[in-house]
Structure formats: C-alpha cells, structure tokens
C-alpha cells in the first residue's frame, strides 16, 4: 500500500492505495466519483478522461500513485455554483449525446481541445477527439457543440 494525497474536484484526499490501482478505479471506487467511467481495457475509448493539473488524461492509463500531489478534475467538478460549464451547456444545446456514456470523457477532452485551440475548425475538433469513441452520435453534434462552446468563450 502506498499513501497518496490528491486534490479531486476541489477537495483533498489522503488514501492508502495498492501500487497497481489505476487512477480511474481510485476515483470511482475509493472516492465515489462514478461520473467518470470505463469503456475499454486498452486505452482506446477515452470514456475515462479527466483533467490532471488542468490537462486531459485517460485515467485508465495512469496509476493512482502517479496522481499523488496533483490536482484532478472530473466531470463532477466542472459546474460551479450550479452553473454548468459552457462545454456541458453546449453538449446539451446541440444534442451532442445520446446514451451519455462517452459524454464525461468527451466533455473533458473537448475542454482541453479548445484551451489549445480557441477557434477550432471542423477538422481540428475531429482530430482533437480522435482518442474518444462515441457509438451513438456519429460525432457531428459533438463537433458542433465543441465549436459553439469555443465561440462562447468556453476556453476560459
């Protein structure tokens, strides 16, 4: 067991974890952050995407111990004072989700994408979301949502 201290969605946690525990399992099982989900076992799907110190990472491809001393934001920590993050709002307004399983990861990755590129073209968005799979939407409305959030200044 290894002792780690991680700040997740604004709260600080100190825990004993097995060295092999994946960050996603630590988030889900020890912290109850079940908004972040697992869609594969090969790092392909991006369902598990969270932010580590403000940049997107696949939390299934990171060990919990690697998050020691860092700050994690999950989908559950995005809205402030009941106010949706502009990216969440854009996904809703543009019908960018159906079953919603890929959605937390998509939203976290999209926020990262427009932080790098505040005015992405259709192709920029598609390439930026390459590591996030969605089986329901065909991506078109996701692209629209990301561009709308970018236009609304969602990068801030």
């Amino acid at each position: 067991m290894t002792r780690i201290t991680v700040k997740v969605d604004g709260s600080s946690f100190t825990d004993e974890v097995e060295p092999r525990t994946l960050l996603v399992h630590y988030l889900r099982e020890q912290l109850g952050k079940t908004g972040t989900v697992v869609g594969c076992d090969t790092g392909n799907c991006g369902s598990c995407t969270v932010h580590l110190d403000g940049r997107s990472v696949k939390s299934c491809s990171l060990l919990a111990v690697q998050a020691d001393g860092h700050e994690v934001t999950t989908i559950e920590g995005l809205s402030t004072n009941g106010q949706l993050h502009p990216m969440q709002q854009a996904f809703h307004e543009h019908h960018a989700l159906q079953c919603g399983y890929c959605t937390p990861g998509m939203i976290m990755q999209s926020i990262d994408l427009i932080a790098d590129n505040p005015d992405p073209s259709d192709e920029d968005v598609r390439l930026g979301l390459e590591g996030n799979l969605c089986r329901c939407t065909g991506y078109q409305n996701i692209v629209k949502a990301v561009q709308a959030a970018a236009a609304a200044g969602g990068a801030q």
Binding site: G35, V37, I75, H92, G100
Partner: peptide, 17 residues
C-alpha cells in the same frame, strides 16, 4: 432539448457498475 441530459452531462449517472 432533452430532459435526460441534465444528469448525463454532469456525471450524476446510474450505470449498473
């Protein structure tokens, strides 16, 4: 706009897992 989005975009979901 869909009612079901509210929980899905905020991670307040009830997946079986």
């Amino acid at each position: 706009l869909r009612k079901e989005d509210a929980r899905l975009i905020t991670g307040r979901t009830r997946w079986t897992d």
